[in-house]
């Protein structure tokens, strides 16, 4: 079914900029991209930079698969525009491993078998890095509550919580 579009808000494409050059800093390197203003950060990462680790689940902020870190804070990359993040430091799952190998959370996810299909995993891990940066989770219940923005369709939650708990050194009984 179609919506009727009111003329005053239906902008004429000819008067609009098709693309602008946008500078994004991703995993430490600077990229210059020709993007339309309506490109989400998620689409910029996946379709233009081919950083396909970040996943598109719902595209509406409801699943957390697209979670990335912007200046160290976790956000949903599907609900922000790439052009709004000019000048920010963006970290994706591809940028978490360092010189000494995998990020401790990546290792813990492997050791705890914290995934089945793996689709939600990059978002879960980036979200958990954000959780640790925030420093608010003190108990297992806190981890569950503060990770609720990441849905796992396979239901790997118990192992995900175990992995995070271990890296955060939270007593499982706390």
């Amino acid at each position: 079914m179609r919506t009727t579009l009111s003329p005053e808000t239906d902008a004429s494409p000819t008067t609009l900029p098709e693309k602008t050059t946008i500078q994004l800093t991703i995993n430490g390197s600077v990229h210059h991209l020709e993007l339309a203003p309506w490109t989400s950060l998620l689409d910029a990462l996946r379709e233009y930079l081919h950083l396909t680790g970040t996943k598109k689940g719902c595209d509406h902020g409801q699943c957390g698969a697209c979670t990335v870190l912007v200046d160290g804070k976790r956000i949903n990359s599907c609900l922000t525009l790439a052009i709004m993040k000019e000048g920010a430091e963006i970290t994706t799952i591809e940028g978490l491993a360092g010189e000494n190998g995998l990020h401790p959370l990546q290792t813990a996810f492997i050791e705890h078998d914290a995934y089945q299909c793996g689709y939600c995993t990059p978002g879960q891990i980036c979200s958990a890095v954000g959780l640790m940066n925030e420093g608010r989770a003190k108990t297992t219940d806190d981890i569950r509550e503060l990770m609720s923005g990441n849905i796992c369709r396979c239901g790997a939650y118990p192992h995900i919580v175990d992995a995070i708990q271990e890296v955060m050194k939270i007593d499982p009984k706390a």
Binding site: E8, T9, D59, L79, M84
Partner: peptide, 30 residues
């Protein structure tokens, strides 16, 4: 006319993806 502010974008972009909101210009107030 037809412009909107955008802040976090978490409601506006969600509604724009559904064609419920159709601004012709976004003013990023961040």
């Amino acid at each position: 006319e037809g412009a909107k502010f955008i802040a976090g974008g978490t409601n506006l972009l969600d509604l724009m993806k559904e064609n419920v909101e159709r601004p012709n210009h976004l003013i990023d107030i961040n």
